[in-house]
């Protein structure tokens, strides 16, 4: 950056500035909406400053859909799902990438096909299965169906292929068991991929809508998207509540991303093996 001319630098900052405004403004506007009464959002000229109605909106929202309980549900479901799915998908991806077994390619092919089946096709059969088991309106009904998430398995398999066989062989020669190898050697090396898949799985379940909507029956079991959706009625929408709800549902994603961001940057495969 030392040799960049002032003009170029000004231009650079100008475009960066515009970029930041464009990407940050919607969030800011959401925050403004969340802290103002519903009518303010449509006013001309618009009110560009956060108001003092935030607590009121929050109280209404909690009265209306029990937002605290709902956020708890969403967090519990999403974190359990992410942990469970990450383990299953990583293990499955590892098996597909590094083990030789009969029918491996056929099974993997079927997995790829499964990615392409539209969700609505499986919706009703899946619903019948869970209702026959008597698991309607339970959290496990939300968590389990996608715990072996085909796309995440695919992603992990592709990443696992980068692990040199010699590394695994070296471990075996040293007398490590297969689980030891998986937990002690493969997982640490896979941290960046795991973080990426983790964020992906977290986002998927956090935003998951149709399935929880269909399978959860009572308001105290709802997840955030389902509860927020119930705020939108025929003709009357309290936009203050909606904005407050959206703000609350965006925050955890931001926090989760910031926590794992380091993993993206610092995780490097190199260094674990010298060839």
């Amino acid at each position: 950056m030392k040799n960049v001319s002032p003009l170029k630098k000004t231009l650079l900052y100008f475009f960066l500035f515009v970029g930041v405004i464009v990407s940050v403004f919607p969030f800011y506007w959401m925050f403004v909406g969340a802290t103002n009464p519903s009518g303010e959002i449509f006013k001309v000229p618009p009110n560009f400053f956060p108001g003092t109605h935030g607590w009121e909106n929050f109280k209404n929202l909690n009265e209306n859909v029990g937002i605290i309980r709902v956020m708890g549900n969403s967090l519990l479901i999403t974190l359990t799902f992410t942990a469970l799915a990450a383990i299953i998908c990583t293990a499955a991806g590892y098996a597909f990438a590094k083990f030789q077994f009969k029918g491996r390619n056929q099974i993997f092919f079927m997995l790829l096909v499964a990615i392409m089946i539209p969700y609505h096709v499986t919706l009703i059969p899946l619903f019948e299965i869970f209702s026959n088991v008597g698991w309607l309106n339970t959290f496990q009904a939300v968590i389990l169906p996608q715990a072996a998430y085909p796309f995440a398995i695919f992603l992990m398999r592709q990443n696992m292929q980068a692990i040199p066989d010699s590394l695994l062989e070296a471990a075996r020669v040293d007398g490590a068991g297969e689980f030891h190898i998986f937990f002690r050697i493969v997982l640490p090396v896979m941290r960046p991929a795991l973080a990426a898949v983790g964020i992906f799985l977290f986002m998927f379940q956090w935003n998951n809508f149709i399935w929880p909507l269909v399978v959860l029956q009572s308001q105290d079991m709802y997840t955030l998207p389902v509860a927020l959706s119930s705020l939108v009625g025929m003709s009357r929408i309290d936009y203050g509540q909606v904005m407050m709800g959206t703000t609350l549902s965006t925050l955890p994603i931001m926090i989760f991303f910031l926590l794992l961001q380091k993993q993206f940057i610092s995780g490097i495969l190199g260094g674990s093996v010298k060839e």
Binding site: G134, W135, N137, T138, F139, Q140, Q217, S218, D220
Partner: peptide
């Protein structure tokens, strides 16, 4: 265990 803990209130309609 976690799953079992979440399954409270399983009454449907």
């Amino acid at each position: 265990g976690v799953l079992a803990a979440c399954s409270g209130n399983s009454g449907n309609g």
